[in-house]
Write a protein that binds this DNA or RNA. Structure first.
Length: 1162
RNA sequence: GCGGAUGUGGCGUAAUUGGCAGCCGCGCCAGACUUAGGAUCUGGUGCCGUAAGGCGUGGGGGUUCGAGUCCCUUCAUCCGCACCA
């Protein structure tokens, strides 16, 4: 009787569910072990074969630990808030809750089919009010806490208030605003990543290359009032504690990168008063006229001075010289105009208008605009005012003189620019300072002359999207502000520039530019022709900057001759001595924005009273998500929660917060809830938390490195600070399972191909075929009828170019198109995938279907001239009439499995339902054939859950990503059958062919033989080693070896088969359970005890030594292990074969390694 | 650019401390059987060579009696971060 996996698996799955076989004990004297899987988000697409990889591995481990006598917590739950369900709700109006529940039901059904040993009594869902009550509660704790830098932990906000000066003197609003600056959950105006298409803000890690990770919509920077969590307070601890956890290096490194600690120095650069033009070595300051028309202006000016109006004379007497405290000139030429009175120092122009000016108001406006543009303030008085109210006019002038300049005020004096640098040693190499365009000092320091260009540049930089900015990193833009800073050591003046290579969000938004030793400063300096000073020897600055942190300092005053390391130290000392700045640490990590303008998330437990945000009382939790009529933002752009009934108000009066929490809120603490899933009084009881402690093994994908895995660490540390959990890290060990990738097939329409026709014999001419910029093929154009393969992916471009120069195309070829491009079937990518689905589904539904058919259709090629075309399809050259119809080629690529890529392989049967549009397409593509829904067979139906489990593990190392292919699954399937036979073959003498008929009592109670025991114990030893190292792939091969060897030995002894069933149970639980029952046990194999291997069965008395000469193995010789090295050496030398390989020479040296090898050096 | 990882047969992969390179499986080849299958069983299968033998762990170099493994260098692929001062 062959093994019927369908019956057996169904039987045991039902049994386990009914008997709650995998219940976790609450109070146990057993040691505990906590195995956690990444919180899944059940999507409508269901489970694909990539999902269970990690679950299978952790399930094997959990089952193994149970057999080893541990009380194992191995729970499962769902991250059930999320965007896809909401988007579906927007489209259909169906409540996201219903979608979510349907998805969960399907997900659960699929999980159950794979035979996981989860304790379903502890299932949690983030969208369950009983769960999110505590998510909200934790938020309230965050709101009520601040980070005390002295104790270096979070504390109640009440401990902060006494430290704040004059707190009680502030109004309630002021108090609230002040405290928000300290709270760990706070409301502030923040630059957010706003995604208009999704209608929500996104976290930094949800944005990839300037577009949203989900959907790929553009994202812009926007200032918004938002809830944030002060994760930056924990930056240092999040970084340091990484050293003490057993996580993969790649995850830890990703987190270190993301936190981005850099140690350096802040340095203040004071600003010069704008140097006088003479100091600058340019024109005198009072030469403010437009030089081109200066001669004419000079004439006019002199004439005007001699023809002063009465009013002008009167005013001149009051203001001449420095009577009002500032020097005032009259009839002075500025730009192309002559102004009546001007104070150059204060950039003030005073005009006295007679009647005539009424007629030229428009002209005056233009003139004023121009003068203001170059930084002047223009005030006007009428002749009447001057004559009648001269005192008032003078006081107005004084007021204007004393007012701060519209631009350029603040120059010198107290103002300074603070920069952050990690290379204080290069301070003498500073030749300019660059500010981010958004820097707050820009307005203040820009000189009037530069005002215009600076304004333009700032606007340009602001409107440039983040994406453009990232895309043209190469493009160097910047502008001079006209202002100068003072070098803190040399006292020299160094220009201040703006450049968008400086990021406003990092450090101080200002850098001291050291073009000699920083590549970014270098390109900037080269581009704008700024001086480059070499201060660290060892580079060639004519070509590139010398960024390396090694070499001796030169041109650096007191740092000269020091090595970089020394110089850094010395420079920091000097900077601190002069009180110019101090050592400082910067982090790249930003606070986590916590609000989302979506419906399907946890409501933030906050209400507003007189504009002051207040958190709810614990008694009022949970704040349940209200019903809304539509899941869209309101017309005024308010989040969907604003659509809630007007009664949805705190005490019927106060508005609740309308944002909801982001997806990661609920998943940041779910591992704690599993410990005590039904507790209504606290998020998890003290006893439970103390018993279970943190997760022993966390299995999850590396894609969460900078998101979930950082937040969950942050929340754990926070809860630890509050004394709510006794550990500082959520998981001791973390393993990243690799990704099972999908093979996406692309259907491309070959629209245009290069069309060649050789007019002459051109055997000597070589045509280069260039794919994506690289020459992939050189074709001899005289032999174009010889086929050459050019594999081409979707999106690739092919061009053809002649290798020899001076070769003109038309003379040799009739060329209709000089280049060929392979384009997608339509311009819409999804359509391409959709066609692929059709084709794939159709092929799979064919009786003769083999997976290989689809994956191995290569792009082959197509060319045509005159009325014919040729192409290769499955290696066969096809000649055809040239048609209007497009030619389709199928190409495949390995990428992440995802619904959007339609490359999902489901573990169970997966019916394909096409929408109406797709059904029409189906008709078109398959010659009007009526559409029949087709079912794609899943592995589970074809081979069973045990085979799926074994195969996914057998595929390779757990952490490696690999494309899904089913080519090898028959191997594990055969293995399962062989295993079954081992327990069922009554008569080993029957030929294998007659085997199926054999039955009866196959298991013998005779004592096992020595070789049988050896096989068993060798296997136990290896399996234990493999499991402990999470090397599941090798353990499967060890099982195969074991079964092969026992079959060879015709072993049917209970003494062997019973332990074997136990050790294989974690991997293939269904068949193990069945075999266990066959062995006469009533209770599940889950409660058996894992056997311990006995070394005594493995001891060998002899070893077959490889005898090698100069490291090359020549032959083998068995020696007793009791033989000493000297004895073996003697024996080996006495061998006939040894003499043969020595060829009469005397061995120089003989190395004998006990139980390993003999090496003879000749 | 910086950081991390990986390169081994036709394919997925294996190799305790540096000690027989290629375990296990797929595929392939040959044979057996007939129920003609999505079988099963037996044998073979790194490459070159009839063989003896030689060559082989991305390339080059080094340490060593001995290197897939250690060191240096270089190339390729994948992932993460990225004008982060």
């Amino acid at each position: 009787m062959e093994y019927n996996f369908r019956e057996v698996e169904k039987k045991w799955q039902a049994h386990w569910a009914k008997n709650k076989t995998f219940k976790t004990e609450n109070n146990s004297s057993k040691p505990k072990y906590y195995v956690l899987d990444m919180f899944p988000y059940p999507s409508g697409a269901g489970l694909h074969v990539g999902h269970p990889l990690g679950y299978i591995a952790s399930d094997i481990y959990a089952r193994y630990k149970r057999l080893k006598g541990f009380n194992v917590l191995h729970p499962m739950g769902y991250d059930s808030f999320g965007l896809p369900a909401e988007q579906y709700a927007i489209q259909t109006g169906q409540h996201p809750k219903i979608t979510t529940e349907n998805n969960i039901a399907r997900y659960r059904e699929q999980l159950d089919k794979i035979g996981f040993s989860f304790d379903w009594d502890r299932e949690v869902r983030t969208s369950d009010p009983a769960y999110y009550k505590w998510t909200q509660w934790i938020f309230i704790q965050l709101f009520n806490s601040w980070y005390n830098p002295e104790t270096n932990k979070a504390e109640s906000i009440n401990t902060l208030i006494p430290k704040l000066k004059n707190f009680n003197g502030l109004s309630e609003k002021e108090q609230s605003d002040l405290l928000l600056e300290y709270r760990l959950a706070y409301l502030s105006d923040t630059m957010v990543n706003w995604c208009p298409q999704l209608g929500t803000v996104l976290a930094n890690e949800e944005v990839k290359d300037g577009v949203s990770e989900r959907g790929g919509y553009p994202v812009e920077r926007k200032l918004m009032k938002q809830w944030s969590l002060r994760i930056t307070a924990y930056a240092e601890r999040l970084l340091n504690d990484l050293d003490n956890i057993d996580w993969t290096e790649s995850i830890k490194e990703a987190q270190r990168n993301w936190i981005g600690k850099s140690e350096g120095t802040s340095i203040r650069f004071s600003l010069t008063p704008n140097p006088s033009p003479r100091e600058r070595g340019t024109e005198p300051g009072y030469h403010t006229a437009n030089k081109k028309i200066w001669e004419r202006l000079k004439e006019n000016s002199r004439e005007n001075r001699n023809n002063q109006t009465e009013a002008e004379e009167l005013l001149w007497e009051k203001v001449r010289g420095s009577k009002l405290g500032f020097k005032i000139r009259r009839q002075h030429a500025i730009d192309q105009f002559i102004s009546d009175f001007v104070c150059l120092e204060r950039k003030l122009i005073i005009e006295v208008d007679g009647e005539i000016h009424n007629f030229q108001q428009e002209y005056d406006e233009g003139r004023t605009y121009r003068l203001e543009e170059i930084g002047y303030n223009v005030i006007r008085f009428t002749n009447d005012s001057v004559k009648n109210k001269i005192d008032w006019v003078c006081s107005e002038i004084v007021k204007a003189l004393q007012a701060p300049l519209s631009f350029g005020e603040g120059v010198g004096g107290e103002a300074f620019i603070e920069v952050f640098t990690t290379r204080p040693d290069t301070i003498f190499g500073v030749s300019f300072v660059t500010l981010a365009p958004e820097h707050e000092l820009v307005e203040k320091i820009t000189t009037p002359e530069q005002k215009k260009v600076v304004n333009e540049y700032v606007t340009f930089a602001k409107n440039r999207s983040e994406r453009e900015r990232q895309a043209d990193v190469k493009k160097i833009t910047g502008v001079f502000t006209g202002a100068y800073a003072v070098h803190p050591f040399t006292g020299k003046q160094i220009p201040i520039w703006l450049g968008d290579y400086v990021l406003a969000g990092y450090g101080t938004g200002a850098v001291m530019a050291v073009p000699g030793h920083d590549s970014r400063d270098y390109t900037f300096a080269k581009h704008f022709d700024l001086p480059i000073i070499e201060v660290v020897a060892g580079g060639d600055l004519s070509k590139e900057s010398h960024d390396a942190k090694e070499g001796k300092l030169i041109n650096s005053d007191f740092l000269n001759g020091l090595e970089v390391k020394e110089a850094v130290k010395r420079a920091i000392e000097a900077i601190e001595e002069k009180n110019l700045g101090k050592g400082k640490t910067n982090f790249r990590l930003r606070d986590a924005i916590f609000g989302r303008q979506r419906y399907w998330g946890e409501p933030i437990p906050v209400y507003y009273k007189d504009g002051i945000p207040k958190v709810l009382d614990e008694k009022e939790l949970p704040l349940v998500l209200p019903e809304v009529d539509k899941y869209l933002p309101t017309e005024t752009g308010e989040p969907p929660l604003a659509r809630a009934a007007s009664s949805w108000k705190k005490d019927g009066k106060y508005e609740y917060e309308h944002s909801t929490m982001p997806g990661w809120a609920g998943s940041s603490w779910y591992y704690l809830r599993y410990m005590d899933a039904h507790n209504d009084n606290t998020f998890a009881s003290k006893e439970a938390v103390n018993y279970w402690q943190n997760v022993d093994l966390y299995m999850g994908g590396s894609e969460h490195a900078t998101g979930h895995l950082l937040y969950v660490r942050f929340w754990t540390k926070f809860l630890n600070d509050l004394g709510l959990v006794p550990f500082i890290e959520p998981a001791k060990k973390l393993i990243n399972q690799g990704m099972i990738q999908g093979v996406s097939k692309f259907v491309m329409e070959v629209r245009v191909q290069a069309t060649f026709k050789s007019l002459y014999d051109q055997n000597d001419k070589i045509l280069n075929v260039i794919k994506d910029g690289k020459v992939v093929l050189e074709l001899n154009v005289g032999k174009l009828d010889t086929w050459h393969h050019v594999f081409c992916n979707y999106g690739s471009s092919l061009t053809f170019q002649f290798k020899s120069e001076g070769f003109t195309l038309p003379t040799v070829f009739a060329v209709t198109h000089a280049s060929a491009q392979f384009t997608a079937a339509t311009s819409i990518e999804s359509k391409v995938y959709s066609y692929h689905t059709l084709l794939d589904g159709w092929l799979r539904a064919q009786p003769s279907y083999r997976p290989i058919v689809i994956t191995e259709i290569p792009f082959e090629a197509y060319w045509h001239y005159e009325n014919k075309c040729w192409y290769y399809f499955n290696g066969i050259k096809v000649e055809d009439e040239l048609q209007d119809k497009p030619l389709w080629v199928v190409n495949s690529e390995v990428e992440k499995m995802s619904k959007s890529k339609l490359n999902v392989v489901s573990p169970d049967d997966n019916p394909f339902h096409l929408d109406n549009r797709e059904q029409q397409d189906y008709k078109y593509y398959f010659s009007n054939e009526e559409y029949k829904p087709f079912i794609i067979k899943g592995i589970l139906e074809d081979y069973g859950a045990d085979a799926l489990r074994l195969y996914e593990m057998f595929l390779g190392p757990l952490e490696l990503s690999k494309p899904w292919n089913t080519n090898g699954i028959s191997g594990v399937s055969n293995f399962i059958r062989k295993l079954w036979r081992l327990y069922h073959c009554a008569d080993w003498n029957v030929t294998p062919l007659l085997w199926r008929g054999a039955g009866g009592e196959a298991i013998s109670s005779e004592p096992a033989t020595k070789p049988e025991l050896k096989v068993l114990h060798k296997t136990i030893k290896k399996i234990v080693g493999d499991i402990e190292n999470f090397s599941f792939n090798t353990s499967i091969s060890n099982f195969m070896i074991c079964v092969n060897e026992l079959t060879e030995l015709k072993c049917n002894k209970r003494e062997i088969l019973e332990p074997l069933a136990i050790i294989i149970a974690p991997y293939a639980p269904h068949i193990a359970e069945e075999l266990w029952e066959k062995l006469g046990h009533k209770e599940s194999v889950t409660y058996a005890t894992f056997p311990i291997h006995k070394e005594e069965y493995l001891v060998e008395s002899a070893f077959n030594y490889p005898i090698s000469f100069n490291g090359k193995t020549r032959f083998f010789q068995e020696y007793d292990l009791s033989l000493s090295k000297e004895d073996i050496e003697k024996e080996v030398l006495g061998l006939e074969q040894t003499q043969k390989y020595l060829e009469g020479k005397t061995p120089k040296k003989i190395i004998v390694v006990h139980n390993k090898i003999v090496n003879i050096v000749v």
